[in-house]
Simulated assay, not measured.
Amino acid sequence: MASGPKTPLAWAVHLSVVVFVLLWTLPTAGLLVSSFRDKDQIAVSGWWTALSSASQNLVARAPAGDGEEMVDGRFVLSGNVLDGAAGNVSAFGFSSRGPAAFEPGAVADLRGGATLTVAEDGSYTLSGPESFKDKRGQRIFYTAEVSPRFTLENYGNVLTAAGIGRSFLNSMTVAVPATVIPILIAAFAAYALAWMPFPGRSLLIAAVVGLLVVPLQMALIPLLTIYNNVGQTFGIDPKSYVGIWLVHTGFGLPLAIYLLRNYMAGLPREVMESARVDGATDFQIFTKIVLPLSFPALASFAIFQFLWTWNDLLVALVFLGPTDDKLVLTGRLVNLLGSRGGDWEILAASAFVSIAVPLLVFFAMQKYLVRGLLAGSVKGG
């Protein structure tokens, strides 16, 4: 049956969705573009100008006498301030107080009878009665219309930084077990709460829902204290991966149990009853019927949990510490930015290095996400 014309409300809803998608997508697109831009262009123009020429105030330094020649009794140095890059010089100067004092082709008089000329294509000529070898290189200030420049150097600097590979493995060591362990535990608990009647089941479900609102930051220090005390008693290294696995498991279980329980409660009751009539035990029903049917819900929680554990920094610093052998990828990138805080190209490239794996996980499993979240939201057992 053909649908009728859309109402104004439907158009408003669709328009709102488009606006929200753009609001979420544009910053990410800008970050991606910036991660490939030249560092000098990032400092002077926004990412939306990446495909157009930009006017930049730059400075170059003529080499101190290297390659000078004798022409008509004067020492001459020549070169190009653009250093091979495409662009046009619109003004130049020899002092920071007048960086655009001269037009291209004009002759600027320097100290000691020296002169400086910069052409529109960026080529310069520095001439003087004395050799430039015993002097500091002459600074040349210039304003240029520079063509867009893109480079992979930003990613090269991030990926070749000391310890990046080790930190990547540390993040995988944290994220994979911290995703698998709560799924295994929550699947058993969800099946029991959905299909196994026992006294106090409703109270347990209410407790699980209540634990969803407990903030991690409030319980982090008490958990660390308890874990350290237990570790001293049983001789467990307080900075081992076991501690962070337990913390991520504990805080991931309420959402996992709630999500899986709602999904499993919506499975057809007739299938369960037929299996019991055929003599199947609860464990057989769980492993052979419930788990295969619950894969969308399992995948939905796996996406959430992996994204959380992979991007985590606070819990990793508290339970693993800042040492190089245990530092996760987010901590390594923070340290890299700490020593190079003004390098925006490093920030942009680091952001995409850190989200590369979560993006792969999300796009590989996103088809199960909505199905797993919505299933069981209307009907519950």
Results as ranks from 00 to 15, higher is better:
residue 170 N to E: 13
residue 115 T to F: 04
residue 185 I to C: 04
residue 86 A to K: 11
residue 200 G to K: 01
residue 162 A to F: 08
residue 302 A to R: 00
residue 341 G to K: 02
residue 6 K to V: 15
residue 193 L to T: 12
residue 199 P to M: 02
residue 183 I to W: 02
residue 80 N to C: 10
residue 251 F to A: 02
residue 274 S to D: 14
residue 270 E to P: 10
residue 347 L to S: 12
residue 80 N to V: 09
residue 320 L to P: 10
residue 138 Q to K: 13
residue 55 S to W: 06
residue 14 H to R: 11
residue 252 G to K: 00
residue 331 G to A: 01
residue 139 R to K: 13
residue 144 A to H: 13
residue 255 L to Y: 07
residue 71 V to M: 02
residue 183 I to Q: 01
residue 57 N to D: 15
residue 318 V to G: 10
residue 24 W to Y: 00
residue 60 A to M: 11
residue 96 S to Y: 12
residue 3 S to N: 11
residue 317 L to S: 09
residue 126 L to N: 07
residue 140 I to C: 14
residue 364 A to V: 11
residue 243 G to Q: 02
residue 167 S to K: 05
residue 313 L to V: 07
residue 331 G to F: 03
residue 154 N to Y: 04
residue 192 A to M: 07
residue 105 G to Y: 06
residue 25 T to S: 15
residue 191 Y to K: 01
residue 356 A to R: 08
residue 21 V to T: 12
residue 11 W to Q: 12
residue 83 D to C: 09
residue 129 P to G: 13
residue 114 A to V: 06
residue 268 P to N: 13
residue 338 G to V: 02
residue 315 V to R: 04
residue 167 S to N: 11
residue 326 K to F: 03
residue 28 T to D: 05
residue 27 P to W: 02
residue 170 N to Q: 08
residue 96 S to K: 12
residue 137 G to D: 08
residue 230 V to S: 00
residue 99 P to A: 06
residue 79 G to A: 09
residue 233 T to E: 00
residue 238 P to Q: 05
residue 232 Q to H: 00
residue 324 D to N: 08
residue 293 L to Y: 03
residue 197 P to K: 00
residue 279 G to S: 12
residue 348 A to G: 01
residue 69 E to M: 03
residue 105 G to K: 02
residue 169 L to E: 14
residue 299 A to I: 05
residue 350 S to H: 00
residue 152 L to D: 14
residue 199 P to A: 06
residue 217 Q to L: 10
residue 71 V to A: 07
residue 51 L to M: 13
residue 233 T to H: 01
residue 1 M to A: 15
residue 249 T to P: 01
residue 134 D to F: 03
residue 194 A to M: 00
residue 301 F to S: 04
residue 115 T to A: 07
residue 341 G to H: 09
residue 170 N to Y: 07
residue 340 R to I: 03
residue 348 A to D: 01
residue 356 A to I: 01
residue 126 L to D: 11
residue 90 S to A: 04
residue 350 S to C: 03
residue 370 V to E: 14
residue 214 V to P: 10
residue 4 G to E: 15
residue 177 P to Y: 01
residue 352 F to P: 06
residue 17 V to H: 10
residue 347 L to Y: 08
residue 143 T to I: 10
residue 241 Y to H: 00
residue 202 S to R: 02
residue 96 S to I: 15
residue 244 I to V: 02
residue 182 P to S: 09
residue 74 R to C: 08
residue 288 K to N: 12
residue 15 L to P: 10
residue 219 A to C: 10
residue 312 D to F: 03
residue 77 L to F: 05
residue 57 N to S: 14
residue 192 A to I: 03
residue 120 E to I: 05
residue 219 A to K: 03
residue 84 G to K: 08
residue 47 W to C: 10
residue 94 F to L: 09
residue 338 G to Q: 04
residue 268 P to F: 10
residue 230 V to T: 06
residue 102 F to A: 12
residue 17 V to K: 09
residue 226 I to E: 12
residue 368 Y to P: 05
residue 31 L to C: 14
residue 78 S to T: 14
residue 357 V to I: 11
residue 58 L to H: 08
residue 317 L to Y: 05
